[in-house]
Design a protein around this nucleic acid. Sequence first.
DNA 1: GAAAAGATTAAA
DNA 2: TTAATCTTTTCC
Length: 287
Amino acid sequence: MRKTQRFKRSIKPKKSVQINGKVDDHDEEEEEYVKAAAAAAAASMILQLPCKLKPTSSVIRANHFKKPQIPKSPSSSSSSSSSIISFEKYSILSSDFFQIDALDLAPRLLGKFLRRDNVVLQITEVEAYRPNDSACHGRFGITARTAPVFGPGGHAYVYLCYGLHTMLNIVADKEGVGAAVLIRSCAPVSGLETIQQRRGQKTEKPVLLAGPGKVGQALGISTDWSSHPLYTPGGLEVVDGPEPEKILIGPRVGIEYASPEHVSALWRFAVADSPWISAPKNTLRLP
DNA sequence: GAAAAGATTAAA
DNA sequence: TTAATCTTTTCC
């Protein structure tokens, strides 16, 4: 009954690769960074970085991208202020946006918005998981849990980690390809009170949303949301947003069980200069 | 059918 | 540094 879904492994088994220590070769590591730098640079070109983002002045506010300051004049000029990024002017992304390689999609998701009702988060950190990737949940093939990963891009893949944390992924690439992008960190844009309530913390500091489990908790989602389409209005949506000025890259977190090749792959992307980044930060570098 | 491990977090 | 916590996948 439960074993009806038996599928062949999509990758070659690697029994003897249990890596305990880190690899020592600095040269290769440097090379990896150079390669990833090129990829990130390519992504930046395609993004046509608008560089509209104003550096936060004195106050560290919840949203690194958006204007942090409360308008001093209560005249409420609404959206006329050029320094204010109006969330309303952005529109929901179409499903086509997601139908690309997870490695390309990941950096493009930085700066985009996640919306569920009144709660809006801006994506600040992601990781790419791909076909033939020994760290990807799709490595065992299609199962009841991972089926959404193999579906068409633009859907959610939500799973429970350590029995407690709901991890939100955005499925990438075409149907049949097992690829997704893990949302590791976000910055709050609106619905701060709801976010704080769900998180059980009153803070506005990065501890509120820097970490994949925190994002899922802030959005109030469960594994029932897995396979939910993110390109249709209502429920959970991904909305277009401003691109970051600079992107940091580094190896993915918490995948020591994978093959060395994939452990060292620089498939983690983060918004440079944003405080809304999860630990560890010292493995992230500019391209 | 049982057991191990996990894309983590918060508190000590 | 370590406990908490439970589903998924694998092994016998």
